[in-house]
Design a protein around this nucleic acid. Structure first.
Lengths: 202, 202
DNA sequence: CGAAAGAAAGTAATCTATTACTATCTATCC
DNA sequence: GGATAGATAGTAATAGATTACTTTCTTTCG
């Protein structure tokens, strides 16, 4: 843990690389992030990155792993601690909002990866992440229906799509205003409408 | 209208260029669209594009003009023909869904333009488009509240954000499935939840 | 013919990735 | 415990591909 050390172990550099990419994605179009920009933010030369990653796609792959672990872990924990499906949905939402407030580049990267043509590994990881996320949502929505907390006629697939869209809309609004803080500020009002939509509000 | 003619007038080429970009945006990341790809789709050489546009940004600017005119015109017409604010909202939504079903690349381009750093002209056009769209939505939502069609406590800003997020969520879901038709198929179910959320459903 | 439209080729900049070499860390041996 | 060898991490330079844009020449069409 020497602050003066210039050579860091590989795993620490890999973690620092992922953070650099996540930070850069908050400031610019993720698909425009160059290896030079990543290295510059880390205080390294561009070529040094390829000591730790075989390719740029391998870097993006590491970022997707990072996002999957962190986001799903936090979201699952929030859901487990909730007393009922309806409160779990709210906890998941707020946890997710916290996450994208801390890392505004993440939803942009996910959206961007989905747009890539072909079948790259980072793209597949983004797809499976969102699919798993959707499955958790549908599970909570079904449970809420079974408990009578949500509307009987509720379509869980549509409700899960709208849940994700709710966050996406907040992200878009924050980009319009150029103000990340708006995500958290506007979240409660938007989610209140969603709650009423699925029948959870009195 | 000679099919054999090889030299088209400038305005027709400009229109064809815009369509080529919109089509390409449906298949790949909009920020990865190259002038070579645009020209190839039009059956031209890359350099020929610059006979009609001074720069690539000028092409994107023309695309944004095209989107603004078409989308707002269709949406305004749908709203005018509706009997009440609540039915107008539904008409606007379905019209918008029809538009993005025909041109799935458009929401991607708008989202992508918002992410660009700096202050480019295409980015500003995307911002103003979405702002104007939001103003129309807030107008309808306010009118609906005044008529008692929508919930008294409804926050029009939050409802407008969620309206846009609803569409964004459908676009994301269609990218996940790799199936554009899902946008239109899933739209009614998702919008039904939104309607209940703003208090328009009985 | 003359002007507009396009082809073909070229340019400068930028991107990922590789190479040859150097600096730093760490484990081992006497 | 200090010198040292081997492994790891980093730099600088550059290759090769791709980008937006230009230039020169040719074709098309009224």
């Amino acid at each position: 843990m020497n602050g003066r050390s210039k050579h860091l172990p590989a795993d620490e550099r890999r973690a620092a690389t992922v953070e650099a990419v996540v930070d850069l994605a908050a400031e610019q179009n993720p698909s425009d992030i160059t290896t030079t920009a990543i290295a510059q933010r880390m205080g390294l030369t561009q070529g040094a990155l390829f000591r730790h990653f075989p390719s740029k796609d391998a870097i993006l792959q590491a970022v997707m792993s990072w996002v999957t672990e962190r986001l799903l872990a936090r979201v699952d924990k929030a859901a487990e601690e909730a007393a009922s499906p309806a409160t779990a949905l709210e906890a998941v939402f707020m946890t997710h909002i916290d996450f994208v407030s801390e890392h505004p580049g993440v939803p942009r990267m996910l959206f961007g990866e989905l747009q890539r043509p072909g079948e790259t590994l980072p793209k597949r990881m983004a797809q499976t992440l969102i699919r798993h996320y959707g499955e958790r949502l549908r599970g909570l929505l079904e449970a809420g229906k079974a408990r009578g907390e949500l509307h009987v006629d509720l379509d869980p697939d549509a409700a899960a799509t709208l849940f994700i869209g709710t966050i996406q809309g907040l992200v878009m609004q924050s980009m319009l205003a150029g103000d990340v803080a708006r995500i958290r500020a506007d979240a409660p009002g938007v989610f209140a409408i969603y709650l009423r939509g699925i029948g959870a509000a009195s």
